[in-house]
Design a protein around this nucleic acid. Structure first.
Lengths: 201, 201
DNA sequence: GATATTGGTTATCATTTGAAAACCTATCAT
DNA sequence: ATGATAGGTTTTCAAATGATAACCAATATC
């Protein structure tokens, strides 16, 4: 990130704190009040400078339209999906059961929770009923745990790409892998599993 | 939480999504636009209803002054502890590795994360390196997974209280339970495990 | 010395926005 | 039938808010 002046840092820190305390960003005048300056032009200039250097984005014309870079919100509210339908380019999520807030360091893009059904990943310590944190993406690396669409249903499998086929391997000795040879059939990767959460209470 | 109508649910979901996308809440008119209604009074009534039922708070007179319950306030920043020391009445936590934000529906009191070491709970699908969400309490119910102090170290075990002894059962066939007869020795329960989180990225 | 850059003042203006009044229309339980 | 409740329209108003103009001053930088 490009360097900023101490005054600009002051503005940035105030905005970040304000968002934490209130859940929404301050107005120009609220910032001005904190800086103990009158008028909004000085504030505008600071915001312009911070925007140019990539520290925030502004929604012009909109009150409180300040978006801090790297923290759409410090915590994101993640939908918990019961069913995932593979629509392209973005998978549509149906049956949103609930929402959970989670740390943004774990979240990018349209991440969502998917409730795991079945025991196909039991050897990876993923149980029926767990919540899989899924980051949508159409491709995967070997050994990634992915959500893939098979027969219109979303399943969790470990992903392997070989020379002439793709293998979706369950982590359950009693279950057979799904093998799709190149050119035969299609594997729709919905996303990669980046976390597992299991409420026990 | 008190029940709300489907229309009110629609408003609440829209606000939650808006905050996620933009980092700040919508105005009354933005909500009205989404509901495809003209005028702001209908929206005001929904917000009033939602506020009365505790789903949000409003900052009157302030634009975008909507604070969702379960966000700013109800998202807690939880310490991730590397080591737990059994001090009474509250266990002290040393070596705070990090902090994670998590939904408050899962959090009460001084809840904290503890990094799991070892495979003692492998059959309960808890792996080495997982983060156990621990709610501090000195007692437990049968079959609860608890954090207990044994030889000055915190371990995860399943808790059983029988007539004349307490048994701390590992969920690992290769490990022996710890049995403490009434009057002989002491079992210090640090807390109950109310969730498991495993980052995979 | 010329000239950016940063940070500021005061004042003004057009919009955006929250709030409210007056009134309408279903639905549902008493 | 008769309210209560949820949900809505149109209109209006005052306050909050972003934007901009005209201008000032200190501090670098070339």
């Amino acid at each position: 990130m490009q360097p900023i002046t101490s005054r600009q840092r002051e503005v940035l820190d105030y905005i970040a704190g304000f968002v934490d305390r209130n859940g929404y960003p301050p107005t120009l005048r609220e910032i001005a009040g904190h800086l103990k300056v009158s008028g909004t032009l000085g504030v505008m200039k600071h915001l312009d400078a911070l925007e140019q250097r990539g520290y925030l984005r502004r929604q012009s014309g909109s009150s409180r339209g300040i978006i801090l870079a790297g923290r759409t919100a410090q915590t994101a509210s993640i939908p918990v999906a019961g069913v995932v339908r593979a629509g392209l380019p973005q998978p549509a999520i149906e049956d949103i059961e609930d929402r959970l807030a989670i740390d943004c360091s774990l979240v990018k893009g349209g991440t969502f929770f998917l409730r795991v059904r079945g025991d196909s990943m039991i050897n990876a310590a993923v149980m029926d009923g767990d919540l899989a944190l899924v980051r949508p993406q159409a491709t995967a690396e070997n050994r990634d745990i992915v959500v893939a669409m098979v027969d219109g249903e979303a399943t969790l499998k470990r992903f392997y790409r070989c020379e002439d086929h793709i293998r979706l391997q369950p982590e359950n000795p009693g279950m057979e892998p799904i093998i799709v040879r190149n050119g035969e059939g299609e594997v729709a990767i919905v996303g990669k599993v980046v976390g597992i959460y299991r409420p026990l209470d």
